[in-house]
Nucleic acid binder design. Sequence first.
DNA 1: GCGGCTATTGGACCAAAGTCCGATAGGGCG
DNA 2: CGCCCTATCGGACTTTGGTCCAATAGCCGC
Lengths: 208, 208
Amino acid sequence: MTASAPVVFVVDDDASVRKSLTRLISSAGYAVKTFASARDYLAHAPPKGPCCLILDVRMPGLTGLELQEALAGAAHRRSIVFITGHGDVSMSVKAMKGGAVDFLTKPFDSKDLLAAIQRAVAKDVRDRGDEAKVSDIQARVRTLTPRETEVFALVVTGMLNKQIGAALGIGEKTVKVHRARVMDKMRAGSVAELVRLADGLGVIAAKE
Amino acid sequence: MTASAPVVFVVDDDASVRKSLTRLISSAGYAVKTFASARDYLAHAPPKGPCCLILDVRMPGLTGLELQEALAGAAHRRSIVFITGHGDVSMSVKAMKGGAVDFLTKPFDSKDLLAAIQRAVAKDVRDRGDEAKVSDIQARVRTLTPRETEVFALVVTGMLNKQIGAALGIGEKTVKVHRARVMDKMRAGSVAELVRLADGLGVIAAKE
DNA sequence: GCGGCTATTGGACCAAAGTCCGATAGGGCG
DNA sequence: CGCCCTATCGGACTTTGGTCCAATAGCCGC
């Protein structure tokens, strides 16, 4: 498994459009997968590697915008580039507010699309990295016992062992034991690292 | 100086539009200031309290989009809501990519504009809070001597005093002295707080 | 009930951090 | 030339944090 090319998913009901987009995008070095409808795309297994989505806005069944909404609640974010023949302003604004990377109207310049794809893939890679980090940290947190979790929360507050013990109604000695286990389970080499792990849970997710 | 109402800055070359917008917006409880051109707005002193900008896209001289670009390099971010009579998709996409809160085409619903203003002001308040925090921290960092700054950087790495001393070619004892001064000047009560101050410099600014 | 996990603590001990004291030395400035 | 800031250390001491070994007790599942 070497690092393969990013995958561009194209969802468009027009077969000729799918064909021409496939030619254009694959010639730029991307892998391409096409779908004739939003439903077909949703039935497909979520992508594992770097990728982005090219959506036609107008489609029978779910529209591109509706697909975007449906994916907003999904586990990972997707980078979406919209293309449309009959776009209006409110449509494009809605798409962009929904986090779309770009919104192109036909006819568009090939290099504009490729540039948008590049940005979208880059965004996807960033998002994936963040998600991977967060879920990695969450996995470590889940290995903590309830008590360890409490101690963890107070340690990253900057409280002394003594104070933590008082707050939890246990001895300082016990705090030390839990604390050591927390450092071990969280794989933190110092308090500074531990604080970053704790803050990373919120910060990375919030940075949008 | 009590907490006064948020100020909505309206920039539009059409006097009748300015008048009707002023009526609408002030009736919703906002203070309103109008400008006939982008240049007039730029000549105006930057706002101190919560505010947002309503920009017409088409204007003689600098357009709304150009004003947005000009403000992008400014000290603080502005929350911008665009309104336009003849908007096209590429225009709206550009505005949204540039961080606009909304992009409305005339004729628009009054409540849509007021909702957009509300979101824009809320965003402005958030941004101002973040900027205030960052500049506060930066001010503290500036009071550090060069050596203290170096020690500061290494402490938040999680390094031990001994290691820091070795890295800087000074004794552990000296590190302690600097470290104590850093904690004092940065007003941090614990290493955890210090780490948050250090990380806050980057994180808050990056969260966009 | 036995084994394992969790939570709790004790003692001993070492390493690290923080706090007082004082000291030296170079640079910039009135 | 004194004065202050900065940077550098030393000693002495206390408080914290971390580690190792060992022990008790409750709970859960097989």
